[in-house]
Amino acid sequence: MEVVDPQQLGMFTEGELMSVGMDTFIHRIDSTEVIYQPRRKRAKLIGKYLMGDLLGEGSYGKVKEVLDSETLCRRAVKILKKKKLRRIPNGEANVKKEIQLLRRLRHKNVIQLVDVLYNEEKQKMYMVMEYCVCGMQEMLDSVPEKRFPVCQAHGYFCQLIDGLEYLHSQGIVHKDIKPGNLLLTTGGTLKISDLGVAEALHPFAADDTCRTSQGSPAFQPPEIANGLDTFSGFKVDIWSAGVTLYNITTGLYPFEGDNIYKLFENIGKGSYAIPGDCGPPLSDLLKGMLEYEPAKRFSIRQIRQHSWFRKKHPPAEAPVPIPPSPDTKDRWRSMTVVPYLEDLHGADEDEDLFDIEDDIIYTQDFTVPGQVPEEEASHNGQRRGLPKAVCMNGTEAAQLSTKSRAEGRAPNPARKACSASSKIRRLSACKQQ
């Protein structure tokens, strides 16, 4: 084909351009004929944790799935940006308080904090938690009735009371019990989460009196709706648990309003109706937990002794299953770290194939690490110290990083047969305790 000078094309009309061969290198194709290559998922490591896909996002930050490269346990990490926390009232204080509380709590029905990582340079905090497959609110939203069968609701409620009793025994008032803060594992274990607005009572406090509340409006008791200066913290949790039980068994809320002012007005009056299909035992329990006067409201001991709580409820309806993943529609909620794991395991070791967030990740503290002497050669063979940054567990980050890069360049065919977990650990520049 004859090559045409581009400067001469402006002298031709459209018809003349076609005659000189423009149609031979300008093609129009339908979008259905285009085959897009999927974007390669680059592996990203935060300390010893391999990052997966997004699980959810809230006002405080994002939650992603991660894999512990040492234990191969599935975890969830809450990623918090200090810049964003400053824009939220009491944001930083709530996060630090939640970390302090979770560090000393150990119960099967309370979410466990596994690790805390802090990135000084990017001003990011990573709260590594045990993995929960789904939230209770997500399960309720997945069915038209917006409720659980009585047998399933009873099982979840009993676990909620177990976890709540443990928190109260530790002198902690949750203040925000609701389905949105109750998570579930694949085995059906309920976990109380989000202790950001919780309050730890003084060890020598005479009672459970509280003065502040930041919980969700629909789950607040009349004493808070009416603006009382002080109130019983434990009875606030009992009320919120009662509203939660009402919601998961009926699909409704005892109090509603077009806006928060109308909602608080209705809560302050204390008038509500219980659907007739709840039955006398459940209705009596709800009335005891939603008692207007805090002094007359049920205690956890009274809830445990109630006939509806103690009764064994046979399954009359099919239980609400864990819904498919909202993004991938995966009904099994498979591990989202698998594509990243395959990338590390299947590809040659190259620095361009993975990302390490930083050479140094500070753990379990908000301060910069200490310094240790770096050896410097002298005339008599002895070495003197220069400062060298280290990880919180004493690992020399720069030395590990250099060693990792040197190993990656060394030709050794046997290394390709290593397991995925050992490869992740070798790529991680800074081991965590």
Rank of each mutant, 00 (worst) to 15 (best):
V95P: 15
C210W: 03
D365E: 05
Y118K: 03
T13A: 12
F354T: 02
A198N: 03
L85S: 09
S283E: 04
F25I: 15
S232K: 15
L245F: 00
V368F: 04
I99M: 06
G10P: 08
H174W: 06
E374R: 15
A377R: 15
G171N: 15
L72A: 04
G276T: 08
A295D: 08
G180H: 15
H27V: 06
S378C: 11
Y292I: 07
T249W: 01
D352C: 10
C278V: 05
L9N: 15
T250E: 05
I260M: 10
T249R: 09
S299C: 10
V20A: 09
Q37F: 01
G394Y: 11
P294H: 05
A205H: 10
T249I: 03
D358L: 14
G61R: 01
E121S: 08
Q432L: 13
T328W: 14
T32I: 04
E92R: 15
L290I: 06
S299I: 09
P315D: 13
Q7C: 13
A218D: 01
I46C: 08
V197R: 06
L105P: 03
P314Y: 05
P387M: 12
T395H: 13
L113I: 01
L190P: 01
K311V: 04
S232W: 03
M127W: 03
A406V: 13
I274V: 03
G58C: 02
Q123P: 02
Y166C: 04
E317R: 14
L113Q: 06
H313S: 08
C134P: 15
F219W: 12
P179S: 03
E65D: 10
T402I: 09
G385T: 14
I356W: 15
V173C: 05
G251F: 01
S232L: 06
K82L: 12
K62C: 11
D359G: 10
L67G: 03
C132M: 10
L182D: 01
P280H: 08
T402P: 13
V95E: 05
L344G: 04
A406T: 11
M289L: 04
A406W: 12
T32P: 12
S283G: 08
K82E: 10
R415Y: 12
A414F: 11
Y156I: 06
D162M: 15
I361E: 13
G135Y: 10
V337I: 12
S142L: 08
L386C: 10
A316W: 02
L282W: 02
R301F: 13
L245E: 00
A389D: 08
S307W: 12
K416Q: 12
D258V: 11
Y60N: 03
F219P: 01
A347I: 13
K41H: 12
I322Q: 02
G233T: 15
E376T: 13
D330S: 12
A153V: 02
G15V: 07
P144I: 04
I99Y: 00
E14I: 11
R331I: 08
V320S: 12
V368E: 11
E291A: 12
S142F: 11
A420V: 13
V66F: 03
G242S: 00
Y156G: 01
M392W: 03
H202F: 04
H27I: 03
P369K: 11
Q159C: 05
S401M: 12
C210K: 10
G180T: 13
K329P: 12
L286E: 01
D176K: 00
R39E: 00
D350Y: 12
S240Q: 04
L50V: 04
Y272A: 10
I29L: 06
K44F: 10
I248Q: 09
E33G: 05
L282F: 08
G233N: 08
P315H: 10
L17I: 04
L190F: 02
N393G: 10
A273D: 05
V3F: 06
G227M: 15
L282H: 03
R383G: 07
V34D: 03
E357S: 13
L182E: 00
A417E: 08
N226I: 02
S232M: 02
E396S: 08
S419V: 05
T250H: 15
D176S: 00
R383C: 09
G188D: 11
I274N: 09
D30R: 15
P144R: 06
S216P: 05
A417I: 13
S307L: 12
K388L: 04
H313L: 12
L386W: 07
N181V: 00
K235V: 04
P411E: 15
Q399A: 07
D194G: 00
P281D: 12
G227L: 03
G381T: 15
R104K: 10
I172F: 05
L85V: 08
K312Q: 14
T250C: 08
G276E: 14
V66R: 00
Y292E: 13
R384P: 14
K312P: 11
V243F: 03
R40M: 09
P314S: 10
G381C: 07
S213C: 04
Q37R: 10
R106I: 15
D229M: 09
P413K: 13
L386G: 08
A206Q: 06
K329I: 09
R310S: 13
Q302C: 06
F354C: 03
N181A: 01
L201K: 15
N247W: 03
V337C: 07
L9F: 06
D208V: 06
Q137E: 02
V128L: 05
H107F: 01
P321F: 05
N181M: 00
E351G: 10
A417N: 13
S169T: 09
D358H: 02
E130F: 06
K416S: 13
D258R: 09
D30Y: 00
Q137V: 09
D365L: 09
T402C: 10
P222T: 02
P6R: 09
T250V: 09
G279F: 09
P314M: 15
P339Y: 08
D207S: 04
S334C: 01
G268Q: 09
K81H: 09
Q159D: 07
L195P: 12
K122S: 15
V110Y: 03
W239Y: 05
V236A: 14
M11V: 13
S169Y: 13
D141S: 08
S19Y: 06
L353Y: 11
K146R: 14
K403Q: 15
S19P: 10
L290D: 00
V4I: 11
V114P: 04
T244E: 00
P89L: 02
M125D: 03
L263G: 05
Y272T: 12
Q123K: 01
V110S: 02
G91N: 11
K146A: 09
G242M: 00
K262L: 07
R40H: 07
L252W: 11
L164T: 04
R409K: 11
L190Y: 01
H27W: 04
G394I: 13
E349N: 12
S299R: 13
R425W: 06
K269H: 12
K191D: 00
I161S: 00
M22F: 06
C391W: 04
K269W: 03
T24P: 15
G233Y: 06
A389L: 13
Y118E: 00
G180W: 12
K78L: 01
V4L: 05
R86L: 04
P149S: 06
S325L: 14
W332V: 14
K269Y: 10
Q8L: 12
E70Q: 03
V368T: 14
K146I: 01
H313Q: 05
E120A: 04
V77T: 14
K108P: 10
K83P: 15
G346A: 14
T71V: 06
I46E: 14
S422C: 12
K78N: 01
C132Q: 14
D355R: 11
P413I: 14
H154A: 12
N247Y: 10
L117G: 04
R106G: 03
H345Y: 07
K41I: 04
L17F: 05
G227A: 01
S31T: 12
K124N: 09
G270A: 04
N247D: 04
E265D: 10
L184D: 00
V390S: 12
L400H: 11
E407S: 14
F148C: 02
P222F: 02
N266G: 02
Y131D: 01
R310L: 11
E70V: 09
Y36K: 09
D53E: 04
K146H: 12
H174Y: 07
S283C: 05
S421V: 11
P222D: 00
L72H: 01
S240G: 06
S378Q: 04
R297P: 00
L164N: 01
G187I: 15
N247V: 04
R75W: 01
L45Y: 05
E407P: 14
T186S: 07
M392Y: 06
T336W: 15
V3M: 03
Q371G: 06
K388I: 06
E342M: 12
R74C: 07
D277C: 10
M139A: 11
H345L: 08
V150C: 04
E145V: 03
E349S: 11
S299E: 14
S19H: 00
L80Y: 07
T230R: 11
M125Y: 10
L17M: 05
Q170C: 13
E407C: 08
F234V: 08
A398G: 07
A397N: 03
G187L: 09
T249S: 09
A200R: 04
D350W: 14
A397G: 07
L353T: 12
I224T: 01
S307I: 06
T328P: 14
R103G: 03
S271D: 15
